[in-house]
Design a protein around this nucleic acid. Structure first.
Lengths: 157, 157
DNA sequence: GTATAATCGTTACATCTGTAACTAATTTAT
DNA sequence: ATAAATTAGTTACAGATGTAACGATTATAC
């Protein structure tokens, strides 16, 4: 080894580097989604996430949304402000704890969730069509493992 | 179906939605990398990508870097400007085509690449430790397929 | 050869994002 | 009961980002 045709094995090949590949894939997919449906409704991806969470779990506080969306509290605060301003969300204060907000989709917000959900699912379905059903299940498990692991590997918040 | 305990199958469960899971995973991993080594050297992830590409492929133009990094040309232009300013990169103009730049790592840039490469590989190795070797190979194939597919699904640039 | 179109990279502008600082409300400790 | 610490959410600021417009150069069409 270390002769003229060694493999240079210690040097990184970006195109094979898992973090890089995940980032590129995630960006490609996100752009596809925006183009496919989120843009049309004047939503950002983050606003859409909040709609999606509140669509299935009404009456969450901002802090609970933080936990369920992997967004930080500033991002949630801003997205909630925009959604409230555009009439998709209704915000009130908790009686028990006057710091806490109680967030609920408005009629309009619910309609949005019901309109976009099937589009999102259809996109996902088309995306997954390139995999056999066995690979689909395997992928899901792998992603769970990687997520757990990645979380453990990074420094505490 | 459609009774009180229907599965609501047309409504999206964010936590199971592949694009969402990819985004969360990619962000977690990227933060881990930044914290683990990129930050220490005063590099952004994008600057690091350019270092990595030029480390293995010297004398690229900005447009070629665009193709190899999935970054857009503005992002490349800005990252190259910073890397040049900080002495990690040397920029000259092509003789044949005076629009084209010719980019090469400086001595300092090369050293950076050689220092960070093993750290990056080690991070990747630790991340992948949660998967068996069979799953690791499977994952690689799956990501390739998904990337191709996601690219095909989104509107032409 | 000249006009037109395409390419390379940068700049300008508006928006988005992350970090830290902040106010207000609640909890904990003493 | 009061002081200190914690929690919820917002705001302020600096820096990052995406889109569009731009100047400069080269390629193409006629």
């Amino acid at each position: 080894m270390n002769g003229p045709d060694m493999e240079n094995s210690e040097l990184l090949k970006l195109e094979e580097f898992l973090p890089y590949r995940l980032s590129v894939l995630s960006n490609t997919v996100s752009r596809g989604i925006s183009a496919a449906y989120v843009d049309r409704f004047g939503l950002s991806i983050r606003e859409w996430r909040i709609i999606a969470v509140l669509g299935r779990h009404p009456s969450l506080s901002a802090a609970e949304i933080v936990k369920m969306t992997a967004m930080d509290k500033v991002a949630v605060s801003r997205a909630v402000a925009r959604l409230t301003a555009s009439g998709r969300l209704e915000r009130s204060l908790s009686d028990a704890d006057k710091r806490r907000s109680v967030l609920v989709l408005s009629k309009d917000g619910k309609r949005l969730f019901e309109q976009i959900s099937p589009l999102a699912k259809s996109y996902e379905k088309r995306l997954l069509k390139c995999l056999g059903s066995e690979d689909q299940e395997r992928l899901s498990d792998i992603l769970d493992n990687l997520q757990r692991r990645a979380k453990a590997l990074r420094p505490p918040d």
